[in-house]
Design a protein around this nucleic acid. Structure first.
Lengths: 172, 172
DNA sequence: TCTACAAGTTAACCTTGGCTAAAATACTGT
DNA sequence: ACAGTATTTTAGCCAAGGTTAACTTGTAGA
């Protein structure tokens, strides 16, 4: 069974179709020009390339901070993946100059890796806080943030940040 | 050069670090339990599996609607990939029962494919409208929506929808 | 100390999603 | 009708990210 079959959103929507597709997005809405359309997909593919690397680096930074060291076992457990997979990915991270380590020893971030981790962490935090400020439950916000963070442009990040800030003021 | 190096978000943030990391997310913030953490990543991997399929199916539906037929050439141009890639992916879509076609002929969606396309389209529309309602520019909203749509849970979708609706009322 | 168990690595394999180049099929215009 | 062009498919290549199984290394306890 395909994952999407679990999603079951269609049923939940049929009662208010007008809210879903206002005029500017309904049937008559034309397709964007091919080249622009292609650029959108290219952006997504581009994001995919670094997504996993960012997740690793971010996780390694978190482990270093909270546990004092970053071990493959922990990464494997937290990523829900086998140790062999971690080992292979770490090799790649090393070849990209993001991570350093001696064989059979725990992992460290290079300067480049730390920069990436810091950026990733910021982005993650902004998206997570935004979702919570919107009213999304903590559990869901965490899951969604994990997936969304790599696809949010700087423009949108700034807007999310502003929203979160204003929302906080409103509560106070 | 890694794609993330183009992003350059760190510089933009250093002036207001307090807005970025409030107490509950700052250094002291503990890691979630391993198994829950693993589930988050699993959810992302799961989304990745269907992402591309959904994009294809959604695009095929759009082409059928706006151009009357869905040809590999158009898909290749719009996705920004080679025709060979399209051909291979379409083979997979057929084996999954989402698309049907005769060799060297244009493509159709099965019932299952249409259901997926409809769901995908709805989700896409909700996210896009939400971003625009937030104040994101059209160009950016399109790009971000394309990447984000596959990672937004139903709970968040409903909240986005409500926000967009209320925002619309406020404007009126 | 040395033996067992835990942790890390390596090898061999799979699928997906890209690519190019070449072959097969469909379409169009004279 | 058929020659030439456009489209689609096939074959062979590659890298990424996953797996299991077997091997190496590190470490802690008797």
């Amino acid at each position: 069974m395909l994952p999407y079959e679990h999603f079951g959103y269609i049923g939940a929507m049929t009662d208010s179709p007008n809210d879903v597709t206002p005029d500017r997005l309904c049937k008559a809405d034309a397709l964007p020009p091919s080249d622009q359309h292609a650029q959108q997909y290219a952006a997504v593919r581009n994001a995919h390339e670094t997504e996993l690397l960012e997740d690793y680096v971010e996780l390694i930074a978190d482990l270093l901070e909270h546990q004092g060291e970053a071990r493959s076992t922990d990464i494997a457990a937290r990523m829900g993946v086998s140790q062999a997979t971690v080992s292979k990915t770490v090799t790649r991270l090393k070849s990209l100059g993001l991570v350093s380590s001696k064989p059979y020893r725990s992992l460290f971030l290079t300067e480049k890796g730390e920069a990436m981790a810091a950026m990733s962490h910021q982005r993650h935090a902004i998206v997570l806080q935004f979702l919570r400020a919107l009213g999304v439950s903590d559990r869901t916000a965490r899951i969604d943030a994990e997936g969304m963070e790599h696809h949010v442009s700087q423009e949108t990040l700034e807007i999310m940040q502003r929203y979160t800030r204003e929302q906080g003021r409103r509560d106070a």
